[in-house]
């Protein structure tokens, strides 16, 4: 059983290691992640939202729905925890 798990883990790791050959280089300025939407955020965030911290402006303004869902998630986690194990003593 443990051997099977070890085999599965090694197979996954080998596949991923093979996959990294096609990945962009470390800190490459022309990697696909850096040329699609992020230049728009970096160049326009300051003049559109007047917030110097781009992370904050993307988090709360451009992707506000995302953060709303996030807040709902942690609220749901707290409610689930209370409903599961809260046991008031009489």
């Amino acid at each position: 059983m443990k051997l099977l798990a070890l085999l599965a883990v090694c197979a996954t790791g080998a596949l991923l290691l093979y996959g990294t050959v096609d990945m962009p280089d470390w800190s490459d300025p022309h990697s696909p992640a850096s040329i699609h939407v992020s230049p728009r955020y970096i160049e326009k965030a300051m003049e559109e939202t007047a917030v110097p911290n781009m992370v904050t402006s993307v988090l709360a303004d451009y992707r506000g729905y995302d953060t709303l869902g996030e807040t709902v998630i942690i609220f749901t986690a707290a409610m689930a925890c209370i409903l599961l194990i809260r046991r008031p003593r009489k």
């Binding site: 559109e48 303004d61 953060t67």
Partner: peptide, 20 residues
């Protein structure tokens, strides 16, 4: 309107902070 966006973001952050 542009500074209003900044103010809105501040309100959002306060809400998120209270919940967290």
């Amino acid at each position: 309107p542009i500074d209003a966006r900044s103010m809105g973001i501040l309100g959002i952050e306060i809400g998120v902070g209270i919940t967290v």
